[in-house]
Nucleic acid binder design. Structure first.
Lengths: 256, 256
DNA sequence: TTTTGTTTTTGATCCAGATCAAGTGCCGGC
DNA sequence: GCCGGCACTTGATCTGGATCAAAAACAAAA
């Protein structure tokens, strides 16, 4: 309780201009004065704890949210009570962009661990972007980037096998952490095997088996949620379809 | 040749304000004066023919493109020379939004049939959106909508089986045509079985078999690329996981 | 500490859909 | 009208990963 209070106070106090994430986040490329104006509309609420829901699918859309610390997942209800994990969000990453169109959230977001969030009321942001061209540009870029990421994911789900998917996930996660100043080769997964499997379109068992296989192949060291990448290059090769087991490509390529 | 000339002239001449698509397209919700201003920056080139490439992956991003007539596909190179079809575009739909972020096209676009295109130089559009709040809002909505569509696709590829995928594709295509004033139950597919399969993450053979099965089940009438939806309700039920063959859900749901 | 529930791992089996293999039929070119 | 090639269909087989089952490792509670 004591600790969460500390985090809370801290999260309330850190303005954008002092935030270490500003180079990754919305303020990227803005002048200090413009950052100030953006900062004026940002709200910082108390932190969420594991499992807490930030917004729920169907809720009226009012704000975008940026992760300040911790991590979250977004997920949409699938058929028959199941759900599809759509993405994992790390500090500096924005959530809620998919809700602008319909004016209501198309997915839900919940915390994977204790997390601090910045809330950005969209109506005010929209006003601001009309006044600050570089902010408008940044918004277009952010929206576009999200589309690009979804595209990558479509490629992953449409064309890659289980091994390639997990390798891609690990490497991508590693790179995202690295951009945030953390180790690219030694990190902690805040999500469960179940969530990873769901995200990658695989069964938990498959994810677990692949972790074991990767470890046996000397690519990673896995100890529950603690991951060490021993051979990132090797993972890279797996992603490109050169799995250790098969020398030449046995996959028939779907031409169009 | 004669016919393509006719189309060409027509496509050059129709300004946004006379275009039947304006209610679906970028001008949606703009005042007539603002449509005029938008119209000033739109370029209308000669039509593309089947197979012609509108833009290619890696090319410098300058413009967004809107389909005026016809249809296109976008696709990205997958591993080992294959490609992933990312989307099919019908009149009024915008292409190139994923390129804003990196400043270069992340995918390629090619015509599925003779198609007319409106080109919108992005730099000029960006200037205009700063001046016209409703246009800016429209842009945010369009970008957000694209994200939402990608999300739907992720759900489809991550959680649905072959039958559900094809049913969802047919119904979604039908609805998009209907919005454009065409028949929702009797239409022509401009893409090949191969392209459908690629898009849905299925082998051609599977797509072909499913068309046959759907026809045998009285859901559709298929004659090469000509499709008649006989029982849209039945397709809807398939999408929701109630395939005719199985009474209760044998799929284990991936909980998180 | 034990208890109890959850997450992860491991093993055995199964099946949807991919892949392989042959047609069949359509369409454009000559 | 005939030919050649490509798109599509249909059938037979194979397999990656799902599913089923159960044990093992942990974590939170008591």
């Amino acid at each position: 309780m004591n600790q969460s209070t500390v985090i809370s106070i801290e999260s309330i106090r850190v303005a954008c201009r002092y935030c270490t994430l500003s180079s990754l986040c919305l303020p990227m490329g803005l002048t200090p004065e413009d950052v100030e104006r953006l900062d004026d509309i940002v709200k910082r609420a108390r932190p969420l704890h594991r499992g807490d829901v930030l917004f729920r699918e169907g809720e009226r859309f009012r704000s975008l949210y940026v992760v300040k610390t911790g991590s979250l997942k977004t997920f949409a209800p699938s058929c028959e009570g199941g759900e599809q994990v759509l993405s994992f969000h790390l500090p500096g990453e924005i959530m809620g962009l998919d809700a602008i169109d319909k004016g209501e959230h198309a997915c839900s977001a919940s915390a994977l661990e204790t997390s601090a969030i910045c809330e950005i009321p969209f109506a005010r942001l929209e006003e601001l972007t009309a006044l600050i061209p570089s902010l408008q540009h940044q918004m277009y870029r952010l929206l576009s980037k999200e589309i690009g990421q979804d595209t990558d994911m479509l490629l992953l789900l449409g064309k890659k096998n289980a091994e390639e998917r997990l390798a891609a996930f690990l490497l991508s996660f590693s790179q995202r952490l690295h951009k945030r100043g953390l180790s690219a080769t030694d990190f902690h997964l805040s999500m469960s095997r179940h969530e990873i499997g769901n995200y990658l379109g695989l069964a938990v068992e498959t994810v677990s088996r692949l972790f074991t296989r990767f470890q046996d192949d000397g690519l990673v060291r896995v100890e529950r949620k603690h991951i060490e990448l021993l051979d990132p290059q090797g993972l890279e090769e797996i992603i490109d379809g050169a799995s250790p087991g098969r020398r030449q490509a046995p996959q028939r390529q779907q031409q169009t």
